[in-house]
Amino acid sequence: MLEAFAAWLGKSPLTAFLENAAWAVPTIQTLHIFCIAIVFGGAAIVNLRVIGWVERDQPMASVLDRFLPPMGWAVLVLLITGALLIASEPNRALFRTVFWVKMGLVAVGVAATFVQRRAVADGPAWAPDALPPRAFQLLSLATLAIWVAVIFAGRWIGYVSGWPGSPT
């Protein structure tokens, strides 16, 4: 089924366009990396606030309100640019385990961020200079580690080989 999808996508005008315009893929990748900067930079600031390294004088909820919306939009653009990169070379990512590991990690990272937001909304209001409980700090550092792993997995898509027998 995945193979049929890749074959169908490969015959689409979109793939033809992306293959022929030499500027298209590097441009999409530039936008992709810029959006990673928004998500990862934002995640770094939010999660470092949790352990009190930055924005310590700000209530946690207001830090989240400032950074989560642009991060959410950037994730949306990442999904679109990522889909376009798959369309540019349909046999490249879909048949490599590390791509699916990356998608799984993205889902976990997004879910962990929602859990974080919910905990802050429901919990006692975090006043300026207040630090959350240790468990919450550990969740924050784990979330940051997940985003690091996402970047590693993403870069490795280009280097690993596909599943045996998969189209090339």
Partner: peptide, 17 residues
């Protein structure tokens, strides 16, 4: 490359703010 991307996204992300 992985560490380069992590570093660049932190440079650009923090400067962007």
């Amino acid at each position: 490359e992985c560490f380069h991307v992590i570093a660049i996204t932190l440079v650009v992300g923090s400067i962007l703010v």
